[in-house]
């Protein structure tokens, strides 16, 4: 499973976020989203991200909004940051993109 539950409200995506993982990740993230009203998704371990991966993030963001859940992506790995910046999506996912200060951002409640 590419998703690791670190704590009740915190998940970590482990490994890549590509078309190979997309189906499994979508299912896992959606399940997590339905279960918990508040969720932090830790992206620090994402090695590679492609269009399919980016779409999953966008989907989760959309779904969370329409279901009134509070979801945050945190600790974006360099690969994720590169893609978000290239697509000018940093603002949309911007909860905690603080370059070089992951830990501080992550510790914040």
């Amino acid at each position: 499973m590419p998703l690791n539950r670190v704590s009740a409200s915190r998940l970590r995506v482990e490994g890549d976020l590509t078309i190979y993982e997309a189906v499994a990740l979508k299912a896992a993230l959606m399940a997590a989203l339905v279960d918990s009203p508040m969720l932090e998704i830790d992206l620090s371990d994402v090695g590679e991200i492609d269009t399919a991966g980016l779409q999953i993030l966008l989907l989760i963001k959309n779904e969370a909004e329409s279901r009134g859940r509070d979801i945050r992506f945190i600790q974006h790995s360099p690969a994720v940051r590169e893609v978000l910046e290239m697509c000018d999506l940093a603002a949309l996912f911007g909860d905690a993109i603080v370059i070089g200060r992951h830990d501080a951002a992550a510790e914040a409640p």
């Binding site: 189906v23 979508k26 269009t51 999953i56």
Partner: peptide, 15 residues
């Protein structure tokens, strides 16, 4: 064009 979760196929491209 990204649909909601039920209709979204992770291997399709919507972007």
């Amino acid at each position: 064009e990204l649909p909601n979760a039920d209709d979204m196929n992770p291997e399709d491209c919507y972007l």
